[in-house]
Amino acid sequence: MEDEVIKKFLYVNRKAPYGTIYALESLEVVLIGAAFDQDVTLAFIDDGVYQLKKDQKTSVDSGAGMKNFSKTYLALGDYDVNKIYVDKASLDERGLTADDLMELVYEDEDDDYKEKSSISIVNQDELAELMEQQDVVLSF
């Protein structure tokens, strides 16, 4: 983009998928935003962690009859969206661990071109510090 300003954008996701459209439409913003070459971080807190649950099964023609958009998260790495922070306390209180989440990876073009995990499971101090560094916080 022509604009030279690079801002730190944080997307805060605190809602579960499917029950409402927030998760899906939030992801659409992230994908469009990726084209603007800004510094993007995603945070998943509270019920938002359910967005990353693996094995989501639904399609327009089967099951719940809703579009399964979970695969889009797997593509985030290709859009250079690779800073994905998950609140550990939110996982813990839901009886979830890292193994319950989709494996989101990216290719590290700045280092060894190896495939690395985009997900960091962090405690509240780390996440609070991250929030503090942002220029724009978008919550859905």
């Binding site: 604009d3 913003v29 800004q38 724009v136």
Partner: peptide
């Protein structure tokens, strides 16, 4: 488009 939202965040 949604780009207008991102632009609003930048500008």
């Amino acid at each position: 488009g949604l780009g207008q939202l991102i632009e609003a965040g930048i500008k």
